[in-house]
Design a protein around this nucleic acid. Structure first.
Ligand SMILES: [Mn+2]
Ligand SMILES: [Mn+2]
Ligand SMILES: [Zn+2]
Ligand SMILES: [Zn+2]
Lengths: 149, 149
DNA sequence: GTGATAATGAGAAAGATTATCATTTGCAAT
DNA sequence: ATTGCAAATGATAATCTTTCTCATTATCAC
């Protein structure tokens, strides 16, 4: 009897690599996260997870994102909406920062090595090793200069 | 009959300038804030305020910091402890950033004009006007290199 | 001083997250 | 494959921070 054994998501594999017990719920949440390229909060993750497997509870989503964060699989973000938001750590794109559109709330990612090293240097000069950078900028779209005529 | 009229704190004066009704509680909270040079949360502000005037409630402290923030008198900070922290806006020292000691939680302020303009430029290049920068770095004190001998 | 209006105090309510505990499940050893 | 046990889950209560409600009180322009 063959076991098709549908391939696990990249995050589920990571889960196993870290020696975490791979339950059905964790597999589902890992899949949902691998499938996301935005910054969902727990409620949104729960909605997406339930569509894959309805036998999942929001408590487990809370527990799982915490577990994944503690194991370096997820990164928690705070964009000021009162709820934590999550994204996969070190996916394809490395460390990055976030620009939040003041009017729409849209999150735009950006990288900047000059910023990386400037922060690194500032902190070192103060006698510290940089552990974490929490940075997000809020911006308002510039009015496009209207061509006359 | 003379009215000694003990001089108000700088923040209480600001309060009046903005046309806000100057109640005893607001005067007390304004004084406590003017008197602080750290980043207290609401509970801590309440503790300090009660020592000045016991007839104050924590609800009023919450209301007042919100009011002051909406009027540009206070700045709200998020250092990740789950509660908002506050400091006077534009006191003597202008805009600044915060380094949090990973081990002690101590908050160290710093300014850096290169960082200011780099962020400004990055955001502009993305087609936005910078509205707010939320930045705090977490660092760990470097082990002092021990001189041999 | 009076009165309209806004602020306050006490506690309820809201919203996000964590804890509890009985039940279920993964998984390692047999 | 079965068994056994530690760990995970679901449902819900508890916690924590902040906001809201509403009856009472205080501010301030007149
Ligand atoms: Mn926060
Ligand atoms: Mn909260
Ligand atoms: Zn991101
Ligand atoms: Zn500061």
């Amino acid at each position: 009897m063959k076991e098709p054994n549908s391939p696990d998501s990249p995050l589920a594999d990571l889960c196993r690599q870290r020696g975490l017990k791979l339950t059905g719920q964790r597999r589902t949440i890992a899949f949902v996260l691998s499938d996301s390229d935005d910054h969902p909060d727990v409620e949104e993750l729960y909605r997406r997870a339930v569509e894959v497997d309805p036998r999942i509870s929001i408590a487990t989503v809370y527990r799982t994102v915490r577990l994944f964060e503690e194991n370096g699989i997820l990164q928690r973000r705070d964009f000021g909406g009162g709820r934590a938001r999550y994204e996969v750590a070190d996916g394809d794109h490395g460390d990055h920062y976030h620009l939040i559109d003041a009017d729409t709330g849209k999150v735009i990612e950006f990288e900047n090595t000059e910023l990386d090293s400037l922060l690194e240097g500032i902190v070192r000069q103060m006698g510290y090793d940089l552990v974490t950078t929490r940075l997000s900028v809020v911006g308002r779209r510039k009015a496009k200069p209207r061509s006359r005529g």
